[in-house]
Amino acid sequence: MAILSVLTGIAIVLTLGYGVLNGFRDASTAVAASIRTRALRPAVAVSVAALFAFLGTLATTGLSVALVDKLNFNVPDGVVGLKLLICGLLTAGAWGLYCWWRGLPVSSTHALFSGLVGASGASAFMGDMSMSGAWGLLLGSVLLPLLVTPVIAYILSYLLVIPATWLMRHNTSQSVNNGSRAGQAIAACAVALGLGLQDGQRTGAMIALVLITGHAMDPGPMTWAIQLAAGAALSLGVLLGGWRITYTLSRRLVNFDPLRGMIAQGVAATMLFLGSLVLHLPLSTTQAVTSGIVGAGNNQAFESVVWRNVSKVLVHWVLTPAICVAGGAILTLAVHPLLGNA
């Protein structure tokens, strides 16, 4: 029981750390466009984003267990299950820090799920219990969204620029920019709310999963304490900001104006809301916002996209599942001699 309690405590700390890192990195996606077009000042942008991310997390109190059920995977009870969760969290955290240092926006969710799948595969290879539905999780919650989310966000943002510019054709550029900045400020709040609905929900689900696996909680409805902890971790990360990624999204990928920034953020927020509240599917905030910005920015009379930098981001999106599956497997193999007989 002692080792079970210790591992549960370690897994809880790592889960909260994952929530902080998630907010730290994904704050960039929520506020980068509004900062780029001066719709919001940086300090105001992160403060507002932190508030709405917290509120979005609290709004998912009844949905986090539904998310776990929807994903259709189960972690073994006890030490084996906690080992898998710890290895998956460590892998996702390490990859997230590396990509932040490089200024690359990648999906924290894809990193976590891929790390868990890799850990499960290594556990099965060694003859231990493993997660049921692991490869379905990889296919349905990582690989399929990786193909679908960027394409939908890009196409919708690109196409919506056409009616938006037509409706504004008789307005002055100053009035269009001023109105778009106001709309973009609202859209930034909506993206931050969607961040809480998506990533805050997953953090709360992970906390509950750790407690259930460690026999510290019975399966059942999510408690307010869990969601408060998840929301606080995510909001703390948002307040810390992730300015390296903000610079990439706002300066290195595409040149866009307030109107296109508003469209991109509006599309991303809508996708996040539908994914969480209607479909109960995990969507990447990073991929939705990034693809929306590139799509809207590309619909201009002049070449505005730096495709070399966009390609670098896309490569790391594809590398995330492969590297994190491998990382989760290697970590599990490494800790097996320490916990194999526990």
Rank of each mutant, 00 (worst) to 15 (best):
A39N: 04
I86P: 09
L84M: 12
I86F: 14
A94F: 15
A32E: 07
S34V: 08
C87M: 09
F125K: 09
G115D: 06
C99Y: 10
A119I: 06
R38N: 08
A43D: 09
A66T: 14
T60L: 10
F52L: 08
L104G: 09
L67S: 10
A66M: 12
G88R: 00
G78S: 09
A39S: 11
W95E: 11
A32M: 01
G93H: 02
V106C: 11
L112P: 06
R36M: 04
V117S: 00
H110F: 11
V44R: 05
R41P: 00
C87F: 08
A53I: 08
N72M: 12
A119Q: 01
L55K: 02
R36K: 03
L67T: 04
Y98F: 15
F113S: 06
S120G: 07
G103Q: 11
S64F: 10
L82C: 13
H110E: 10
G56D: 05
H110C: 09
L71W: 08
V68P: 08
L85C: 06
A122Y: 06
Y98R: 13
S108K: 08
L51E: 02
Y98M: 15
L112F: 07
C99F: 12
A124P: 07
F73C: 13
L84A: 09
G127L: 13
G56F: 03
L58E: 06
S47W: 01
L58T: 04
A59V: 10
A92P: 00
R102S: 14
A33Y: 01
S47A: 09
T60A: 14
A43H: 05
A111P: 07
A111N: 00
